[in-house]
Nucleic acid binder design. Structure first.
Lengths: 105, 105
DNA sequence: CAGCATCCAAAAGGATACTG
DNA sequence: CAGTATCCTTTTGGATGCTG
């Protein structure tokens, strides 16, 4: 399902990173802490296949490949932002719930 | 991260199932196709720990345990709905993108 | 009924080395 | 630079049997 691609560990991070604008492969790798090249390439491939990210190759040496959100990608990333913003705004309440749960359990 | 709990394979399904109101363990198991008891119990535990779902035990034999969304849970499920609704509304465009990708790749 | 414990298979993910 | 290929570890998830 597409939701899986978007909400997957690296999917969220790639999409939100691309909100800043076009980024090249190594820029994404450097910005997204902890991602391996393998997972970044794999994640980008599924997002490109879903039509959420556009991949552009400049035929030069060394190769330059840049990625950017498509209109479709911007739409879904906006919805995703609604979710992540909510989580950030309610992080305190959630942490409190977890602490209470752990204390009683 | 909380996003992982919510967007995890069964997390989405449990939360949206609970939009219908209180449900008992076996009702969730029956409504959510393909979920094992192990994964259902595990998913419910993390959602309860995050304060998104309330767990209520009736001390009778046989035991009755029902689950419902908390205020926090309703908030996050609403945002999640924004995302899943978007995906449903744009499914056609996404499938077309995938088909085009597969045809050219 | 509502789970937990155990064991096992499958999939995700990381490290490293290599290529056009 | 932008990946791919390989190997290995970790995580996830299913099946089954058991308990209060």
């Amino acid at each position: 399902m597409v939701l899986d691609h978007v909400s997957a560990r690296w999917g969220v991070l790639v999409l939100t990173a691309l909100l800043a604008g076009d980024l090249r492969f190594y820029q994404l790798r450097d910005r997204i802490e902890g991602v391996s090249e393998k997972m970044l390439a794999q994640t980008l491939r599924t997002l490109v296949r879903d039509g959420l990210v556009h991949r552009e190759v400049e035929p030069v040496t060394p190769p330059q490949v840049s990625y950017r959100l498509t209109a479709l990608g911007k739409g879904i990333t906006a919805r995703l932002g609604g979710l992540t913003d909510w989580i950030r705004d309610n992080a305190e309440a959630i942490l409190a719930a977890q602490a209470a749960y752990d204390a009683s359990g």
